[in-house]
Design a binder for these strands. Structure first.
Lengths: 266, 266
DNA sequence: CTTGACTCTCCCCTAAAGGGAGGCTGTAGA
DNA sequence: TCTACAGCCTCCCTTTAGGGGAGAGTCAAG
């Protein structure tokens, strides 16, 4: 039986950390002295403590570690979990590297004067029959829902998907209605509904390039609205004239998106 | 001039985040309405906001971003900072990958039954003249101090470095005295001191392998002390019989370290 | 009896927002 | 004229994984 200080040296975990893991029920001392309430650890807990240390060093959170222990307590399994962590690190690296690449392209374009030409025009959208589903979550997740809708629509789908955005601000959990145009009334079920997008007057522009830079297009629209004294209303629309496919992302620099925001008619 | 909601859509930053950046003086609205205290942003701030978003997406902290802005406000410079972040991500990946490799080796050895044989013996250390320096910080940083000492000792150094540990527990900021044996009295300066490590009785063992697993050796020592009723005293010593060199790390599986903890003589 | 080492609990602090309450104004609709 | 609603404000609480430190109890030695 080891007192906390000894156990700290043996395991390479700080005393503070050990107390915290106790509080979090991640590593419970095998005995607690009734009188002194000293924590007492024994040999069997050393392995457990080392596993925790290894996983923490690899960047796992305590919640993740708890989850791992719930599913497997074997030392041999750790390398598999670590492998997953490695993959996510590599993914992160790729993401950052992509941001850098886009940034380089963009600054080149700014220098070349290609950028920031958004032509805003006023238009009235036609009525459009769509099947749709609404979710609250991340912008990037809409692909999943679009996929579901296309699967449901089968051969009745026509044209490209449209998203309706129900927030007047950018949110981590946004309220998004994903729509796929259909040629005729079809049966719907569960969280899929069928509706007519109404005829509506508003302002529109075209954004060419990755979605990360779509803010520029919104800026153009808001500038235009401000200058004309237009009052904008929800939901705004994005029509993905050209975007990622079901299986491949393609070249984001060539994505084409139409943005449309309805204007309040007085 | 944009109100916060509009600005949020244009920049892709949430309203909450914008308010927070204001509070942290990272992105201050160019005007605040006296009466309503509405935040108002203008076009020039869009670039600033986008820079913040890019850096946050790359994993920089707000402190780091402030630091970057203090040294450079040019959009063209961002890719260089991102490059540094990429390097640190790659470094992290290597670290995790190394942990995994060690773990695989170790589990193999456990299966082979090679591991966990620590022979503990009682011994009395000889007096030893050393130059030394004490610091409070991380275990891994001791290489820097050892390097300084060797540089100072020049040709007078002999044998391998010794660390004295002045904590009875594992700490993030440990109190460590780094020693390099010398053949004769030499001049010392600043934070380097010269002293004789005293003759002292205690228990010792040899650890072969990476430092991450040295806890096992401490366990053997503490077990031995507990079984003999020995009371251990500070500082404990690690003698790096074989370890990383000045320029290369070598093979950690072959590092040889002697551990020694003095025993209180009654 | 005191001292020093070791332990305990309890409280405050960090970074980067997110969630929500409660309150303000301006406008539109009844 | 009253009310509802949108959009904004401030203020407070919550999250992670402990670190720092205060104040107090315990144990053994001198």
């Amino acid at each position: 039986m080891y007192k906390i200080g000894q156990f700290s040296i043996i395991t390479g975990l700080t005393v503070k950390a050990l107390r915290y893991y106790h509080k979090e029920s991640l590593l419970i001392p095998c005995d607690i002295d009734e009188k002194t309430s000293y924590r007492l650890y024994d040999t069997s807990q050393i392995v457990q403590a080392r596993k925790i240390k290894i996983l923490r060093d690899c960047g796992f959170s305590l919640k993740e570690i708890k989850d791992i222990f719930n599913h497997s307590s074997d030392l041999d399994d750790l390398p598999f979990y670590i492998e997953e962590k490695l993959n996510s690190l590599i993914k992160e690296t790729k993401k950052v590297s992509l941001i850098k690449k886009n940034l380089l392209n963009e600054t080149k374009e700014i220098r070349g004067g290609i950028m920031s030409k958004y032509e805003v025009n006023e238009k009235t959208t036609e009525e459009q029959l769509v099947i749709s589903t609404k979710y609250i979550g991340k912008y990037e997740d809409c692909g999943i829902y679009i996929g579901k809708l296309y699967k449901h629509a089968k051969q009745h789908s026509c044209k490209v998907p449209i998203n309706l955005y129900w927030d007047a601000e950018h949110k981590t959990d946004a309220s998004i209605e994903v729509c796929v145009p259909v040629k005729k009334e079809i049966n719907v079920k569960e969280d899929i509904k069928i509706q007519k997008l109404p005829k509506s007057f508003g302002i529109a522009t075209i954004h060419i390039g990755p979605y990360g830079e779509i803010g520029n297009a919104y800026q153009a629209l808001h500038d235009y609205a401000n200058s004309k004294g237009f009052e904008l209303v929800l939901p705004s629309r994005e029509t993905y004239l050209k975007g990622p496919g079901m299986f491949f992302m393609g070249n984001p620099n060539k994505y084409i998106t139409e943005l449309f925001i309805p204007v309040k008619v007085k």
